[in-house]
Design a protein around this nucleic acid. Structure first.
Lengths: 152, 152
DNA sequence: GCTGAAAACCTCACTAA
DNA sequence: TTAGTGAGGTTTTCAGC
């Protein structure tokens, strides 16, 4: 993973459809050399996948919320994690420091869809307590840090 | 934005490199019809961009943290938002309900890089108070909800 | 939205360093 | 091991319907 690799990742993060020739021109390599590097980046897991960044509003998910979860003492941590990973409204779930166990990011169609989600957690006895924070607006949201502008 | 469109977005979210022929087979459309729909989805903003999902660890960003921010009364909201949107370590910033004004998600190389970030905010007099939560591990993190598995 | 042809692009075997 | 070259196949693009 050298400078050229992270530049390639940065370029692909900006536009995942850039041609190998374009990228090659940017990093002074032939298309096939770039191809080989991308293959390695994907194989090593540095690039997880090619995807699209969608506007969730346009897809009908108007509400973004964060749910702080304190796991119930009797809950099985692994079961909870599996449930989170598989749940369709959960876009992120992190084990965190501080007063709460997990921070869960969810996207739902409307405010009314939050309560059923919490009820699900309660019914499964995952919840000791929870707190929900609604995002009123989003200032920025990028899935990838574009390398090359980090430190100065 | 019909069912076919959201299915296309879902397929592209899974694999942004799927061919038009593949997608066409999945939604019973010709490649060129799929192409036209994708063009419209990009133009309308429903698809923001094609990109890659990267492993931040592999890129040298080992630390993920969430910073709760209560904006100082004298801070200019717009200036703060511009600053967040442009800051290289900030991957997300949301205006939220509850006791805090903003939730900021940052990715840095090491724990030691968090303090300089907070100092920056302090020096610019954005901060009334703040609280930082470190992510110990990530259970799931998908940038896009894959449509078609939502309600039942 | 479909068809078909042309252009652009990716892939891969081979070669060189 | 890593990169360049070129041929062949695939994919995207676009005009006409």
């Amino acid at each position: 993973m050298d400078d050229i690799d992270s530049k390639i990742v940065g370029l692909l993060a900006e536009d995942g459809r850039r041609s190998l020739a374009d990228i090659g021109a940017a990093v002074s390599l032939s298309p096939s050399a770039v191809n080989e590097r991308i293959r390695r980046l994907v194989n090593s897991g540095a690039i997880r996948r090619f995807t699209v960044e969608a506007d969730h509003r346009a897809l009908g998910f108007d509400v973004l919320a964060f749910v702080w979860v304190a796991l119930a003492p009797e809950a099985t941590e692994m079961e909870f994690r599996d449930f989170m990973a598989a749940h369709p409204v959960v876009t992120e779930c992190h084990h965190v420091t501080g007063g709460w166990s997990y921070l869960v990011k969810i996207r739902v169609a409307s405010l009314g869809d939050i309560e059923p989600f919490l009820s699900e957690l309660k019914e499964r006895r995952y919840l000791a307590r929870s707190e929900t924070v609604i995002a009123l607006s989003t200032v920025t949201e990028k899935s990838v840090i574009i390398p090359g502008r980090m430190s100065r």
